[in-house]
Amino acid sequence: MFDQLFDGALLESVFRALIPILLAAIGGLVCERAGVFQISLEGMMLVGAFAAVAGSYLGQSALLGVTIAMAVTALFSLILGYGAVTRRGDPIVLGVAVNLLALGLTSFLLPQLFGVRGVFQHPRIDGLDRLAIPFLSDLPLIGQALFNLTIPGYLSLLAIPLIWLFLFRTPIGLRLRGVGERPASAETLGVSSTQYKYAAVVFSGLACGLAGAQLALGNVVQFAENMSSGRGWIAVVAVMLGRAHPAGVLGASALFGFAEGLGFRLQGNGLPVQITEALPYVVTLIALALARKRFQRILELTAA
């Protein structure tokens, strides 16, 4: 049974599942490094997906959809930025409320703008093309999974080394980490923590916009109510589990992507969809239980 399971097609569905989570998690990772507790990835991804579909539908161009998704989500992220950074509101309350706002807003606008309920599909929505890299995409097993991706897909994989370089090899990255760790110390040296935190939040907005676009124009070509369905929360967990390190976050995202891809495959092999859909969440919980002790920060934040 196993050799039937593990093949190039499985790897493809793993990447399909992995990319939106990874994109959102990259946003979360930068926020975490800047000391912003970011749990509104879920909502921002949903807004991104909606804006991508709307943009693509109106402009009949997938790239326009992606651009609009990123712009709209970046704007949307300012709600959390203003509340949590400027007003110093409770980041957990704000994050939860922003997620619900995203859900309400998208499910309101869907019928209001497009006159449909639940799911919006239309031939005018231009999906993201997969761009095959010559030769590499012909490699066995990994070729299609790694080298025949959409633009957000390539960006997500490129982002990992780039973010690493940025964080650990540039002065701005150094300051961002400093701000996240001891904002008061950074302030005494003249580094404005507000600026860096805002930048991080907006970056997470851009990343989630991309994630949403991939979800709604790459993985499928449609918008469905609440279509992020917990992926943003999994991205939050991936940031924690990966200790806000690019490689760690990639690993954690891959784990969840693998669980989802495997679930998808097992479905094909006869397991009920209800069970396989829960697989990523169960895997997440197990991974969390095994990781232990990595959540001091959030425990402190939540346990008064």
Binding site: R169, P171, G178, E181, T188, L189
Partner: peptide, 27 residues
């Protein structure tokens, strides 16, 4: 102390007045 615990000594010392090569930190 106003130091950043997970950063290195050199990173703490040069923080905000970093020597650079191009856009990169000259470690």
């Amino acid at each position: 102390f106003k130091l950043f615990p997970t950063l290195t000594v050199a990173e703490n010392v040069v923080f905000r007045n970093e020597p650079r090569t191009g856009i990169f930190l000259d470690r």
